[in-house]
């Protein structure tokens, strides 16, 4: 995966979000600059996942607008995926299916297969391309989903609690993948709970405070609110 060409920022303008008739986020404005690395934090139920889904275009806004998104530019990796691990598909096929411009009917090109193999290699699953999903551990499965996200080659990547329910070695490995994406100039928004991780690796933080408001800025500036 090479460097990403400069893209317009992801702009949030007075965004209002509702979930089950209840307003969970009000008047959120700001922008994610191209190539920025932002941690999205807040207690459970403050709307982190809903905000990610809204940015990905999967949750209707109750007000305001979001610019610079759209399915062609955004890759979303949802949390603790409820996918069927017994589904009869191989690791290589799963990753290849995510190739942009694959279309529905043509076969994958050798170049696309090669990219899928490289993605599997990067997440530490080299040699397992022929494995079926049911033969994978939880950590390996999350690595596989990272490889699929890599395959999407999107300028904006949204990750929802990517390190939950995986072992420390896997978390460290996947964090390095995430830093690759950052170095390539992709815009990253990552939902996290581990504040140490946020303070060490994420320059910017968007904190949802739970009363419908947010604190958004450099992690150092938001940090005093994080402990609370």
């Amino acid at each position: 995966m090479g460097a990403v060409t400069l893209t317009p920022p992801l702009l949030l303008d007075r965004v209002r979000l509702q979930q089950g008739g209840r307003t969970i986020l009000e008047d959120l404005s700001g922008s994610f600059q191209p190539g920025s690395l932002t941690a999205l934090v807040g207690a459970n139920g403050t709307g982190k996942t809903t905000l990610l889904r809204a940015i990905a275009g999967l949750h209707k806004l109750a007000g305001g607008r979001i610019e610079g998104g759209g399915p062609q530019r955004i890759a979303l990796l949802p949390q603790g995926s409820q996918l069927d691990r017994g589904f009869p598909i191989s690791c290589l096929d799963l990753v290849t299916l995510a190739a942009p411009r694959l279309g529905w009917f043509r076969g994958a090109t050798p170049a696309q297969r090669q990219l899928a193999l490289e993605a599997l290699d990067r997440v530490g699953l080299a040699g397992l391309e022929g494995r079926s999903l049911q033969a994978l551990s939880a950590g390996q499965f999350q690595r596989l989903l990272f490889a699929r996200t890599m395959m999407q080659d999107a300028p904006v990547v949204l990750l929802d609690e990517p390190f939950t329910a995986v072992d420390t070695a896997t978390a460290a490995h996947l964090l390095s993948v995430l830093q690759d994406w950052h170095a390539q100039g992709r815009t990253l928004i990552v939902v996290l709970h581990d504040m140490k991780l946020v303070q060490r690796h994420f320059p910017r933080t968007l904190l949802l405070t739970g009363d419908g408001h947010a604190v958004w800025g450099a992690t150092a500036a938001v940090a005093p609110r994080l402990a609370a």
């Binding site: 890759a75 995926s81 069927d84 995510a98 009917f105």
Partner: peptide, 17 residues
């Protein structure tokens, strides 16, 4: 192919348009 993808991960299908 779309049916396989939609069967396995409808969320991914929706997110990629």
């Amino acid at each position: 192919r779309p049916l396989v993808l939609e069967s396995f991960d409808p969320g991914f299908m929706a997110a990629t348009g």
